[in-house]
Amino acid sequence: MNQSTNKYTFKIFRYDPERSPRARYDTFSLEVAKGMTVLDCLQAIKASQDGTLSFRRSCRSAICGSCAMNINGKNDLACHLQVSLLGGRTVTVDPLPGFPVIRDLVVDLEEFYRSLERVLPWLVRSSPFPDKELPQSPAERDRIDSAVNCILCGSCTSSCPSFWFNTRYLAPAALLKAYRFIFDSRDEAKGERLELVDDRNGLWRCRTIYNCEEACPKLLKPNEAIAALKIEALKQSV
């Protein structure tokens, strides 16, 4: 293949409050080899063109969730998305929407983690733990299987218009986490958790927009989880 056909233009959101209060886009041209991901390209740009470019990354295997960003208008993991799969020769990279930007592609996830904390994201039991394992049947595990796979990248919450309007809304990631424990057969705090999500800024702010499901790089279904939680909250209030 002709080398010039592998040239891509990267239009990257830049913001450095220590230098300027105004954000801008910088454009970089890069040769992209077959199989390179957006993260590979960002690292190449940082290494060879602009060392000040800031972004988060860690595992490079789509399991840590650090490199979630908005690529060509869609939230995704930069380490998981191959450039060749994107249409066109221009790749626009923005920070995750809805969160305050700290610098370039790095966003402040404080509110995200705070809402996660509100749903008690750990196993709660009043009865004592058994000496060895705490067994769970395959059917019981299936119920929460997809929710367990959430990597907390923030793509869903960042894509949720209800969260954009109201950052105190628990938002899809925290509600999915609540679902993961409420429907966990080993957990014993179902009532307490349901009370926490049955809140003015909880479950009922979901408008079933489905952005969260489109944005999830792990193909999870936060919307279905929220619907199940609504029915469970209703059952509890009967």
Binding site: E195, D198, G202, L203, W204, A233, Q236, S237
Partner: peptide, 11 residues
């Protein structure tokens, strides 16, 4: 009974 929205949601 503590509920902020479930009955309204159903209604």
């Amino acid at each position: 009974m503590k509920t902020t929205g479930s009955w309204w949601w159903l209604l």
